[in-house]
Design a protein around this nucleic acid. Structure first.
Lengths: 412, 412
DNA sequence: GGGCTTAGTTGGGGCGTTAAACTAAGTCCG
DNA sequence: CGGACTTAGTTTAACGCCCCAACTAAGCCC
């Protein structure tokens, strides 16, 4: 998603196209004169750039805005023409999302399937089939395809280093998927990273350049946006927050230690505390979402045991989050996964802990928010990641005068 | 230090000048043809850019490197002509460093003075006097002046929000100092941030784009470089690592809780554990550095009590660091302050904890290093921060043909 | 000493932005 | 109702920067 270097005039043009496109994304429709004012370019240049963006299908002329002088024709991101595709490979489901540059949803689907049991090759086949479904859903141009994977991913090489829950190891997923999709550019990234990206692009914290995404699943996942970009670290393994050592005498964790954060606030902890033995909520045979909704219903009904458990978990959530907020100073912490589903009860005690434990005045300006993207955050983030390629370099999108646009820089 | 936006040809020129300058800083002297090859520019452009950089005093033609064909004239960063000034305001001393673009030290000095007791206005006077000393030490052009302050700093406005040890609050330091220095551009930043910058620019981890700097002082300070840039967070309060809650039943901390990291590994913990009551090491009347050297001598001599204390502190250092490494995935953790001074004994147990607790394979590629910048890291980082202005925009440096260079963008 | 190789310069041309004048299309107000 | 005013957007010429290609420069190899 990092912008290509600017060194020659084509690079300058590219940078200015990206500047306009980014302005439209961040601040909504503008007249050409308005774009010129905001970006510091001249009206002539803005007009020329808008003409090119129109030719590439990225923007269109929309409604007319009257003013004191001649009415302005607003330029806006064009829905439907240029899309990004997100895929998600998870333990018991696969998902697809197709978004256009305007942020509109072209297609979205989730398939229940035992990807972990299917084996790598059949999983790739299934992802390829989903991708083709996405490709068929749009007659526009597809900027790229991004796969969200729960595990450690080498983004630069598109390799899944280790995804324990899927049983994948050193899987050359980008390559294998591109091979089944006529060489289209395929990116691979961690699901929490992509979820953070989705919150940054479109969620409750849209536009916030510094945010921390925390998702409650079997473990606890973390994704960090810092300075408007994903924090990736030296080898792409940032956001390993599940094993914050919070209680030296706590419960044993899969990592071999005791009292890790995810033993306190992970899904297992929730189900254990919320349900007495024999309770249907604790029955692994029942669908997980059904059980979580049951928990929510009980909380809403005021069930004492449930409320006490959620209060305790919310408190521990806040303790762990405060550590991260002290280190990262985000403007927002966004809760996803089951944290969001039960956020109504988790957030108040978590906010109290944050307020008490964050050293910066006024909590460093940090707000605790609940994601409204639900369990689709990762796949939406994938689609956004694909679109970000075009926002960084609009010349990737082909021009409509059937010019195949011999772009000098090879894809992927 | 973020690069100015590129939108017109002057911006393009600026970006290319910066590209060449950055190449010379990162990879040492090059011929003009070599610069062209490495950057992708043409030889003609590289020659033109080098001519301009020479005119601005940033580079010079150095030795001749023979090869197969015509010998190359190497272009190198020019010592002495363009400088950055770093200042440091600390509780019991103030410091000055003047560096040139080639990384050479033009001047460096430390003054023992009770800044906390002096009051803000006299402290600013003293800093201004030090800065003038630095200005007098060079006949070159000064890119800027950066002040390192132990506290919470609003970098954008040059305001010290809160520096408890100095007794400063909402101090408009950049403004006040610039007023005493003929309006020269003054930046203000947190000392740990600037120390991290110094390690990134010139220390044992030079060039590492992702590093974590940890300094042992009264508290524990942290500075994070991520993706080659300082991590600042939403309101500039990143790196508050001293109060990681590591031991719920530990010693009480000034923050009101128990078992914070700095109660385990801060200076007070070291002195307490290392010295029996009545020991000169624990005597607050003695100079701190003297006492620390005494501790080092005892450790070197194999004193059992000292070694046991250092082993315990090193272990706790590693426990806390592992949390940060799991979140940030840096390529290096650099220890500064007293951690570096006693690193010989602290590092081995700390490395063992890191290896055991970091989840990414091979510790995420992270190495634990000891700073060799000593207690000058912050002031050196300040000088580098000032120089970074020129590396980001070489047109800030005036041309030698006495052209006052009416730069469109105002300083500060 | 001639050929080869690589460094660096020169001149012409293309491209993108700028500046300024101009046209376009409304509102405001007497 | 119509002219002045205001703002949007286009046109044209000019300029700056980089690229390309040809050329000169200066050493090494045989």
């Amino acid at each position: 998603m990092t912008a290509p270097p600017v060194s020659d005039q084509l690079g300058l043009r590219r940078a200015n196209l990206a500047l306009l496109l980014g302005t439209l994304r961040a601040h909504g429709p503008h007249s050409r004169a308005g774009l010129a004012r905001r970006t510091g370019l001249t009206k002539a240049t803005a007009s020329s750039l808008v003409a090119e963006l129109t030719g590439r299908g990225l923007v269109r002329l929309g409604e007319v805005a009257p003013g004191h002088g001649r009415p302005a024709q607003l330029v806006e991101l064009r829905p439907g023409a240029v899309c990004g595709i997100g895929l998600e490979a998870n333990v018991d489901y696969a998902a697809l999302a197709v978004l256009d540059v305007a942020g509109g949803t072209i297609a979205q689907r989730r398939v229940a399937v035992d990807l972990a049991g299917a084996g790598y090759d059949r999983a790739v086949d299934l992802l390829a089939a989903l991708a083709k479904e996405g490709l068929a859903a749009t007659d526009g141009w597809v900027a790229g395809i991004t796969v969200a994977v729960p595990g450690l991913v080498d983004v630069d090489h598109g390799v899944v280093r280790l995804a324990p829950n899927l049983g994948w190891r050193e899987a050359r997923l980008a390559e294998d998927l591109a091979g089944r999709l006529a060489g289209r550019p395929v990116l691979v990234d961690n699901d929490a990273n992509l979820s953070a990206l989705a919150e940054h692009a479109a969620g409750v914290a849209a536009g916030t350049p510094d945010l921390l995404y925390l998702t409650g699943e079997v473990g606890v996942g973390g994704g960090v946006i810092a300075g408007g970009a994903l924090l990736r670290g030296a080898t792409g393994f940032t956001g390993e927050v599940g094993h914050l050592p919070l209680d030296p005498v706590g419960l044993p964790c899969g990592c071999g230690r005791r009292g890790c954060w995810e033993t306190q606030v992970g899904l297992a902890a929730l189900l254990r505390e919320v349900a007495p033995p024999g309770d249907p909520v604790a029955d692994p045979a029942t669908d997980l979402e059904t059980r979580l909704l049951l928990v929510r219903d009980r909380a809403a009904a005021g069930d004492a045991r449930t409320l006490a458990a959620l209060d305790r978990i919310g408190t521990d959530l806040g303790v762990g989050a405060s550590i991260l907020v002290n280190v990262l100073n985000p403007a927002a912490v966004v809760l996803g996964g089951y944290f969001a589903l039960l956020g109504e009860w988790l957030a108040p005690p978590a906010r109290a802990e944050l307020a008490a434990r964050v050293l910066a005045p006024d909590c460093g300006g940090c707000r605790l928010l609940l994601s409204d993207l639900g369990f689709t955050a990762a796949v939406l983030g994938g689609a956004h990641a694909a679109l970000d390629r075009v926002f960084a370099d609009p010349t990737l999108a082909p021009t409509d005068d059937s010019d195949p646009d011999p772009d000098p820089r090879s894809p992927q």
